[in-house]
Simulated scan of single mutants.
Amino acid sequence: MADLEYSEDPRRSKQQRRDEVTGLKMWKLPVTDPAEQNSTKASYDVILLSDEPPTDPPFESGGGLRPIVLEGATVQPRLGGTGQYKSLKYLVRATGFRLVTGQAGTSSGGSRSAGGTGSGKTAS
């Protein structure tokens, strides 16, 4: 899904956000970490940087979750929350992903530009 700029004017057409450093378009990929014990931290968005839209991994039966590995990933800590309920959050960015098949640590052949999540994470 495209990461669009915020506009207070609903009539104004929204532009897709671009990374300030690379100038590449930003795409959001919702991911889930099935190993995370805290339910509020188990799902989050990965920002994918690419001029081309991400391609979805082929659908696999069994719940719709597909294990993937991030390529070119960076993680940046941020302060999240409001008021007295602040917490440490992370901004996760990647340049691509690849599917994990079979045994843990084995990945499929093709890597995909701009469409990924962290090691051991699953795309939802």
Rank of each mutant, 00 (worst) to 15 (best):
E71P: 00
T22S: 15
P58F: 00
T22W: 07
F97P: 00
G96Q: 00
S13E: 11
T40S: 15
T95I: 12
G72K: 03
S43Y: 00
V92R: 11
S108G: 11
G81E: 01
Q103V: 08
L99Y: 06
R17W: 02
D45L: 13
S113W: 01
P58C: 02
R66S: 05
S39N: 13
G102L: 09
T74L: 08
L24K: 14
F97R: 13
M26V: 14
L65W: 10
G64F: 03
P67Q: 05
S119A: 01
A73K: 12
R66C: 04
P34W: 05
L88Q: 10
I47Y: 14
L48R: 06
P34Y: 04
Q76H: 10
R98Q: 11
D9F: 08
R78A: 11
P10G: 03
R78L: 11
S43M: 05
K86D: 02
E60R: 12
L24H: 12
S50Y: 02
Q84D: 09
T95V: 14
Q84T: 10
Y44V: 08
S39G: 08
L29R: 11
G96D: 02
K28T: 12
P54T: 07
S113H: 04
P10R: 01
E36V: 05
G80Y: 00
E60Q: 09
R112W: 05
T32R: 12
P54L: 07
L49N: 05
L70V: 07
K25I: 00
S43N: 10
Q103Y: 06
S39P: 15
T40L: 13
G109A: 10
V100H: 06
K14V: 12
P77L: 03
A114S: 07
T74I: 11
T40P: 00
D9P: 05
L65S: 06
K25P: 02
T101M: 12
G96F: 02
